[in-house]
Design a protein around this nucleic acid. Structure first.
Length: 595
RNA sequence: GGGGGUGUAGCUCAGUUGGUUAGAGCGCUAGCCUGUCACGCUAGAAGUCGCGAGUUCGAGUCUCGUCACUCCCGCCA
């Protein structure tokens, strides 16, 4: 039988006991992290969310409690009364926050027993993630995991405080809503009351927050769950959380400025890191030109250099042909990397191949000139021009990709980020932000022969590009902006279209005809016709942001109950089958192929 | 949909060229131990080698299939 709590009242959390309390009587409760039984003396490390505290049980002080302590095992739930005491000379443990003190226990209660846990809950061994997730309630007891969740709490608290201070109203938007074309696959929820019809879970509260602006709330914010039925990645979960904001009567600068303030507070209060009040900005075009990607990691240089003009007439056919046929030749100079082995170069080539590059040329700058399979194809003037463009010096390694602009940028850009990691240029406690602006409004889909919205269909074009909508929509730029932190997109938003006519035109360009637009977005179009204010907003990926703050590479580390890569929950075993009755009520019959 | 990695005791892993009864550390159980703190010492229990076929006299090991977890490409307005 377990002991009852009785009239015992906990005086404080284990990790908060300090040397200043020496001599005080306290009552603490928690989980047994470890018991060290010396036959005579027994030590118990008692753990709660604030830390670990050593209990000392001496048979000479109280035989009864000593006997009881001998029964205690790992993860038993225990309450003790005792005196905060100094540890004897030479037995202070500097590794523990409470290492100067211990509790001389006078009375102990076993409040609950525990099976032997399937894995140790200390911080010493690595445990496979699927086992941790299956017993997540135990994994969540571990100090490091608790720290991540408490960091997440501090971040959301700071965000709520900041947004409240700046006049944002927290309003909840529907979770059962309507499926929309474009964008990610929707999670669908069948309607019982309306047989054969489905709700969709929101990919984001986009339309509703715009309606709230039409409604005159001026500033809206919500920390909200969003759902996207797409394949998972280390930084992607099917349900994730956004810090979702929208503001009226503002332009891009207003939004970016106010959000810079929020991010600064989050870093300061979350992890005690001060970041600049104003963050750098580059355009999408510049990001692509210099870094090859629209989410550049600016912790290091290693910029891409375009060589298309220089190699146009060179003897290396691969380069020359691509340069003359509208392709792009670019290179990066990896300083001091001429020592890379053949295997390392092969690995880098394979890496570039992942992103579609059919090859990667390399040049080692040695004391006696170029060491490279392609050196023989270039005349001295070309060698010199290339060296100059890349500021190449002895000991450098030059890496080239020649392909379509898209593939050259993507593969070399990813290669740049890969090398930043490999060479230790990207340091974990270094935080480099950049706003990327002026994204193209549309992206052309070659297969379907139609435009897609790069951001979403409600994004406003730059004022000076509005005319392009009629002539060359592919060249129109958007009033959109992404916040990129260490190569990771942590937030993005735009100024929205607040004019019904422009919005209708936009749908037209996206191949959404009048009828479909009415059916899917009629309520938005209607709303825009009733005096919609100029407005815009932004959404931050809370999980990704906390991930970076926590210094982890997996989004699952900052979500209490995450899903696996196949979108299942190992703990609850969701998703699961449902009864025939449930299906019948919903008017759903499963296809035979679905087993 | 595609490519890579992993799967052996509760946990973390080793297991040679296919060959005797599949091992180690931690954990667990029991005993001893009064200043440990990832305590120590002694003894013990613990295995569907992910699952299913196949090759073979013989498979943890080789082949094929399959499942789970994971990283990546596609996908993610």
């Amino acid at each position: 039988m377990n002991d009852t709590l009785g009239n015992w009242k906990r005086t404080q959390l284990c990790g908060t006991v300090t040397a200043e309390q020496m001599g005080q009587d306290v009552c603490v409760m928690g989980w047994v992290q470890r018991r060290r039984d010396h036959g005579g003396l027994i030590f118990i490390d008692l753990r709660d969310r604030e830390g670990v505290l050593q209990l000392a049980l001496d048979p000479d002080r109280d035989l009864e409690s000593h006997k009881k302590a001998a029964q205690v095992r790992n993860e038993f739930v225990v309450a003790v009364k005792g005196k905060v005491s100094p540890r004897p000379e030479g037995t202070v443990n500097p590794k523990m926050k409470t290492g100067e003190v211990e509790i001389e226990v006078s009375e102990i209660k076993i409040l609950n027993r525990s099976e032997t846990p399937p894995f140790m809950l200390d911080e010493f061994g690595d445990v496979a993630e699927n086992i941790r997730l299956k017993h997540r309630y135990l994994d969540l007891r571990r100090t490091s995991v608790q720290n991540n969740m408490m960091l997440r709490h501090r971040v959301t608290r700071t965000v709520r405080n900041y947004l409240d201070e700046h006049g944002f109203i927290d309003i909840e938007t529907p979770v059962l809503t309507k499926s929309t074309p474009e964008g990610a696959r929707d999670y669908l929820v069948p309607s019982r009351v309306n047989n054969g019809q489905f709700y969709a879970l929101p990919q984001s509260p986009q339309l509703f927050k715009q309606l709230l602006m039409v409604a005159g709330f001026d500033r809206y914010a919500q920390i909200v769950k969003c759902f996207r039925d797409e394949d998972l990645r280390a930084d992607r979960q099917p349900e994730f959380t956004q810090i979702d904001c929208e503001m009226s009567f503002v332009d891009r600068d207003d939004i970016m400025t106010i959000m810079e303030g929020m991010i600064a507070r989050v870093f300061s209060e979350g992890i005690g890191v001060e970041i600049p009040a104003s963050l750098p900005r580059i355009t999408y075009a510049e990001a692509l030109d210099r870094y090859g990607v629209d989410n550049p990691d600016l912790r290091f240089e290693l910029e891409l250099v375009e060589l298309t003009e220089i190699v146009k007439d060179c003897g290396f056919k691969v380069f020359a042909e691509i340069a003359n046929k509208g392709g792009m030749v670019k290179a990066i100079n990896v300083k001091g990397a001429s020592t890379f082995s053949r295997k390392e170069l092969d690995d880098l080539t394979a890496f570039a191949g992942i992103y579609g590059a059919k090859g990667m040329a390399w040049v080692k700058i040695n004391a006696d000139g170029w060491q490279s399979p392609i050196a023989k194809f270039f005349v001295p003037e070309e060698l010199k021009a290339i060296e100059q463009a890349l500021a190449a010096e002895e000991g450098d390694l030059l890496l080239f990709v020649a392909d379509s602009a898209k593939i050259t940028n993507e593969s070399l850009g990813r290669l740049r980020q890969h090398l930043g990691q490999k060479l230790g240029l990207a340091k974990k406690d270094d935080y480099s932000f950049v706003w990327v602006t002026d994204f193209p409004l549309f992206e052309w889909d070659e297969e379907e022969q139609r435009h897609y919205a790069v951001h979403h269909p409600f994004t406003a074009p730059l004022d000076e590009d509005v005319e392009l909508l009629a002539t060359e929509p592919g060249k129109a730029r958007a009033k959109a902006y992404d916040l990129v932190l260490n190569g990771s997109e942590v937030g993005g938003g735009s100024i929205r279209i607040h004019d019904q006519a422009v919005q209708q035109k936009m749908f037209g360009l996206l191949g959404i005809d009048e009828e479909e637009a009415r059916e899917k977005f009629g309520f938005l179009l209607d709303a825009l016709s009733f005096g919609a204010p100029p407005h815009g907003g932004i959404a931050f990926g809370l999980d990704r942001l906390v991930m970076i703050l926590a210094g982890t590479d997996s989004i699952r580390d900052v979500i209490a109950f995450p899903k696996t890569q196949k979108a299942t929950c190992l703990l609850s075993e969701a998703p699961g089958e449902v009864s025939e009755e449930q299906l019948q009520e919903l008017g759903i019959r499963l296809r035979k192929s679905v087993k």
